[in-house]
Amino acid sequence: MNTVIIDYDAGNVKSLQFALERLGVEAVLTDDIELIAGADRVIFPGQGEAVSAMKKLKKHGLDQLIPSLKQPVLGICLGMQLLCDETEEGQTKGLGIVPTKVVKFPDSVKVPQMGWNIVTHSNTGLFQGIQQDCYMYLVHSYFVPIEPETSAKSNYAGEYSVAINKNNFYGVQFHPEKSSKAGSQLLENFLKI
């Protein structure tokens, strides 16, 4: 199976590659439209800031390509947020796959949220075989509200989405590559979908 990670200068991609390697998968890091379009699995990573991320995607035509993909796509962290219509971060327009707006955590909690939080999930799809109320590692200042597409939620100044799914598009707010065994299981599930 051919798995690619979209290369648009998004933070710590090395750890993601290593996590996939531990599952026996050599993922290619690329911004090549044809390679991405032809892959069996596409991972859309993200760490950093929304405005410059969207700029980089547009530069390579990836903003047009990603929504047109038909194979399973996994957005991670900012990658998940950019699957949405728009984000408060720099008032940026996202890829428009999930119709919602990403918003910032209120000042009543420390921002960014940094650390392991409890994830309550659907037990299906990406979460098959993963213990209910497991811990996942999160680092983020903006969040996706609860929507019909929500497949897992957590609580930080209220409930919010830590996983979404629409058709072939999956998004997780946490970093599966940094979330120990539960995270590794989630990546394995994605490869098997």
Binding site: K14, Y137, H175, K181, G183
Partner: peptide, 11 residues
């Protein structure tokens, strides 16, 4: 750092 990242699945 590279060797640690290859072996570790926590931040």
């Amino acid at each position: 750092v590279l060797r640690v990242a290859a072996a570790l699945d926590i931040p």
